[in-house]
Design a protein around this nucleic acid. Structure first.
Lengths: 251, 251
DNA sequence: AAGTGGTCTAGACCACCTG
DNA sequence: AGGTGGTCTAGACCACTTA
């Protein structure tokens, strides 16, 4: 095709005047969201997509470049482009930025404390964009490094999306929790925002983390989003930072 | 030119087999580092660079795309491409991720505590890649939000790079400190790594930050790098996080 | 009107992976 | 050998800025 404005014909109502590659990106994103291709699967090749959308390969390429930059998709030379996934990755905790002081990442032991079905408190409801009192699931768990407790997590999930989530299924599942969310519930975490502060351990927290009451802890409140910036998980973590630190990169 | 391998002729020793645009990127980076164009100035247009390097505009474009992604350069449509700068930007604190609880960023008051010339302690020397005992400059300062102290910073700089830095010059300078480093000392901060933990305020810190001794504080150790991943600043900040939080984005 | 970055195309060739 | 993504080119046109 020699003219990109073909896509602005009356057959399409008024598809906005964004660049073609942005429109292509939006189309592919919609199909990703709709689950046309499952996490870990290959999407069609650039040439095939170019033919389907009637644009040149370069335009599809630029769209996919951005999807890859957004971590929605992973390119592998010679093989294809694949839907990003939290499962089947060796990285156990994709979003956890905690590192041991010596810098050598070790795997951590998970220990589920409890899993309850509750009515959403006001603050949780606001974060998850549900109504106060709606059904939510609360998990609490501990992460241990070399036998010592390091992270106490309190995880809130909208009940509507995670029907049938039980302590047993959680305990049985090997691999990252976000991988399970994908496979079992079709919920894919795309990005997250964290609010970090320091606070003093109260008595019950101190017991779980095996520190003195009043000991300083890192409080990490993470809100995770799926497609369309829809919040789907609120996670409140308390990190014991005597042998670990939270690592961040600025640029 | 129809063949990129022209650049692999015997006239060039063995310029590595990286893609052309990566080589172009490296060349431009070297000129940025050498200060051929000053921060805030425009670099040559894509067409001019393409002519100079004897490649097509698209190849230069891809090189500059990456430089822009690395924040070394800023593109402005219709005007040109400009060397990134910490000065003349409205953003007062480019690397400071602290936000008030209400989410409305306010400007902060700076108060210099002292500025001393010292011999580098072992840990500081290791971070800055200088020898223990080498000359370093230590600044301490307070950031206040609405009159209340929020951040206590201890900043270490290699003496060799910052000759002539005095408390007076710091106090006189308006605008971001990193802007002054660029303009006055030719040192440009490119990226930084932070290690974050929670710790309890000791007596002297408690006094500066106007909190109770033992109060939990966020400890943020930032190592900043200039071109070539050369460390040029170590900053140890203690953040009072009762009305503020450290904001982070994960993806 | 002229110059800049931004988009799009069509086609070539390369590097990598698989059958 | 054939398919995939990765690089490179040459040229066209668009959108924005400045004079």
């Amino acid at each position: 095709m020699a003219d990109a404005s073909v896509h602005d014909t009356p057959t399409e109502p008024a598809p906005s005047f964004s660049p073609l590659y942005q429109q292509i990106k939006a189309l592919i994103t919609r199909e990703l969201q709709a689950g046309v291709w499952k996490p870990g699967e290959a999407i069609p090749s650039e040439l095939e997509l170019a033919a389907r959308f009637k644009v040149s390969q370069g335009t599809v390429r630029k769209a996919i470049d951005e999807l890859a930059a957004d971590n929605l998709v992973v390119r592998r030379q010679g093989k294809g482009t694949f839907v990003a996934t939290h499962a089947e990755q060796h990285i156990q905790y994709r979003f956890l930025r905690l590192m041991p002081d010596d810098g050598v990442a070790r795997s951590m032991e998970r220990r589920l404390i409890d899993c309850r079905r509750l009515r959403a408190p006001a603050d949780v409801a606001r974060a998850l964009a549900v109504k106060t009192g709606d059904a939510v699931i609360q998990l609490r768990r501990l992460l241990l490094s070399e036998g010592r407790p390091v992270v106490l997590d309190e995880i809130w999930l909208p009940g509507a999306l995670f029907k049938g989530l039980t302590a047993e299924r959680l305990a049985d599942y090997k691999g990252p929790m976000y991988g399970m969310f994908e496979v079992e519930f079709g919920v894919r975490m795309i990005r997250a925002e964290e609010k970090i502060r320091a606070l003093a351990a109260d008595a019950s927290v101190a017991e779980w983390l095996n520190v003195a009451p009043g000991a300083p802890l890192l409080s990490v409140e993470r809100l995770s989003f799926t497609y369309g910036d829809r919040p789907v998980e609120l996670r409140r973590g308390l990190y014991q930072t005597e042998q670990h630190f939270y690592r961040n990169e600025l640029s």
